[in-house]
């Protein structure tokens, strides 16, 4: 991305290529996406399918977000974005 050097006159000199910064930005975006997908596949999907925890008093499932009516849902077929868009929107939202 850049090289740094301190010259004899006491100044700091370095080189920056904007497109290299953009390259790393996109690289980290995809890294972020890969990690999100892996965590969702390995952990989140199961949790959402299981549904909310049960109430300690009544024993019935709690109806807390993101769950509705105390039941779990499949993120692949029944996510909130799917309800809003009609399909799993590929936007990076």
């Amino acid at each position: 991305m850049h090289s740094t050097s301190s010259s004899d006159d006491g100044t700091l000199k370095f080189k920056v290529q904007p497109e290299t910064i953009r390259f790393y930005a996109y690289l980290f975006f995809w890294a972020m996406a890969i990690i999100a997908i892996l965590i969702t596949r390995l952990v989140t999907k199961d949790r959402l399918l299981q549904g909310p925890p049960s109430s300690s008093q009544t024993g019935e499932p709690l109806s807390c977000p993101p769950f509705q009516n105390g039941v779990g849902f499949d993120i692949d077929t029944d996510s909130h974005l799917m309800k809003a868009f009609g399909f799993n929107n590929a936007s990076i939202t």
Partner: peptide, 30 residues
């Protein structure tokens, strides 16, 4: 095809949000 909802729910959302600033700062720096 299916990228969005992967960081909408816990714990994926919190962990992704920890990595996200690197992307944001690099894009702003660019």
């Amino acid at each position: 095809t299916k990228i969005c909802s992967n960081w909408d729910y816990s714990p994926s959302r919190e962990i992704t949000a920890m990595i996200y600033p690197i992307f944001e700062y690099l894009l702003l720096a660019y």
